[in-house]
């Protein structure tokens, strides 16, 4: 079961939040929470690249999936703005919400595939085509990782989450998180060496 994120993570991810401490961001968030769509559009435009990139890497489902889930993230953020109390930077709050949406979206996608008769691997998501022999760039190589290893790699090495946090998010042990990270790294090393 994917757990709700609010209050779960003791520290924000270490990846830089370009808007942390930005007073105009705080104003826009406050205005958006009051129903100001124009302010929320500014919030969206500040964070779209970061959230979309996170979705692209987490889901490895291509641009269309990332688009769909990114829209879901911002709609959810709009719905839940009133619950944002400013304890963490807004970017951190949004990022956590996005991770949660991505993890739940994967389950929905897996259910869809099962209903359609698709093959589902142990992670609950259809296995992707195996790595080809060509040399890959890192983004492509991440996209070819098995889902479990990919999630851990993105959260740990790209986004800066700790193993304890990842274990809570994915409902696995920290040992599993560490093992998946190492698996991902060694696979990536292989992909990138070709």
């Amino acid at each position: 079961m994917v757990r709700p994120l609010e209050g779960l993570l003791s520290t924000p991810p270490s990846r830089d939040d370009p808007t942390a401490g930005d007073a105009s961001e705080a104003a826009d968030v406050a205005l958006a929470a009051g129903g100001d769509g124009a302010a929320f559009e500014r919030v969206y435009r500040r964070h779209a690249a970061r959230i979309h990139s996170l979705m692209r890497r987490m889901l490895a489902g291509g641009e269309a999936d990332a688009d769909e889930v990114t829209q879901d993230v911002f709609v959810r953020a709009w719905e839940r703005l009133a619950t944002y109390r400013g304890e963490a930077a807004f970017g951190t709050w949004l990022h956590r919400l996005a991770v949660n949406v991505a993890l739940n979206w994967r389950k929905t996608a897996a259910r869809r595939l099962i209903l359609l008769g698709g093959e589902v691997d142990a992670d609950g998501v259809a296995a992707r085509a195996g790595a080809g022999a060509e040399r890959l760039d890192l983004e492509e190589a991440i996209g070819r990782l098995p889902p479990g290893a990919r999630k851990v790699f993105v959260l740990h090495d790209v986004e800066g989450y700790r193993h304890e946090e990842i274990a809570s998010l994915l409902d696995v042990t920290t040992g599993t998180s560490k093992a998946q990270l190492h698996r991902a790294r060694m696979l990536l090393r292989g992909h990138l060496e070709r």
């Binding site: 559009e41 969206y44 690249a49 641009e63 829209q71 911002f74 983004e139 790699f153 090495d157």
Partner: peptide, 14 residues
């Protein structure tokens, strides 16, 4: 991995 750059969506999602 830490240095990966974010890029915006190819189409405007707003």
């Amino acid at each position: 991995a830490r240095a990966l750059e974010d890029r915006p969506p190819e189409t405007d999602l707003w």
